[in-house]
């Protein structure tokens, strides 16, 4: 069974009577443990597809299935629960809650999951150490660099032990060295924790790292490439 699946998914936005087609009948299946990039130029529909996979938006047509659950059949509260327990998100920037420290940002997801305080603290510190930010645990986002903030966002995304991490252009605002470090980190987490990663990106470095690249253009899948040796 696929971890993520889009079946005949279309998405049409309407702004002041003008219709914009973001996705046209996309069929795509992503298995557990994949490290996949959704690539394409701006306006190709990659972020829209990522939002549909994350239940942040609903398709105009078609079905999105996460770990066997049809997201279209869930209420907004059930979708929130689905995101809480099965998904982690990393966005381009401003990922973190500014009034929380790095540790509190990471802990908050676990608090929503009902993890006891002592375990929350232990797991948050362990994951921050793992992403190399143990020393900055008590810093607030504004006291950290963009790369450090993205690493905290990755730590927060995986600390809840999700099935899938959806990352929307996670390296877009980072210099190439920081972006490389972040990608290495995500790859390592994918390998060691078995977490499925799906990126939307047009960064060649990310595409290079991905073991599978799904290329989108004008809202449709135009290529689905797997590197030799990947499942």
């Amino acid at each position: 069974m696929s971890m993520l699946e889009a079946r005949g998914v279309s998405k049409v936005y309407e702004t002041r009577g003008v219709e914009t087609i973001a996705l046209r009948g996309v069929d795509l299946s992503i298995e557990g443990g994949e490290f996949t990039a959704l690539a394409g130029p701006s306006g190709s529909g990659k972020t829209t597809l990522l939002n549909l996979f994350g239940g942040l938006d609903a398709p105009t047509e078609g079905v999105v299935v996460l770990d066997g659950d049809d997201l279209g059949s869930l209420t907004s509260s059930q979708l929130a629960e689905e995101r809480l327990h099965k998904l982690g998100f990393v966005f381009q920037a401003y990922n973190l809650i500014p009034v929380f420290s790095a540790r509190e940002n990471v802990e908050f997801v676990m608090e929503l999951q009902g993890v006891p305080p002592s375990e929350r603290r232990r797991r948050a510190m362990a994951i921050l150490e793992e992403v190399g930010l143990g020393d900055l645990a008590d810093k607030r986002p504004l006291e950290m660099s963009g790369g450090q903030q993205q690493r905290v966002a990755v730590a927060r995304a995986i600390v809840s032990q999700p099935r899938v991490v959806l990352a929307d252009e996670p390296t877009a605002n980072l210099d190439s060295k920081t972006a490389g470090t972040l990608l290495d980190l995500m790859e390592e987490l994918n390998r060691e924790h078995g977490v499925t990663f799906v990126f939307s990106t047009h960064d060649p470095m990310v595409i290079e790292k991905a073991r599978r690249t799904v290329r989108l253009r004008d809202g449709a899948v135009v290529a689905d490439e797997r590197k030799a040796g990947s499942a």
Partner: peptide
């Protein structure tokens, strides 16, 4: 609004 979006994305439901 963006922060609220992030909270929704990490799984904070409407009631919370």
């Amino acid at each position: 609004i963006r922060e609220i979006g992030i909270l929704m994305a990490i799984g904070m439901g409407p009631r919370r």
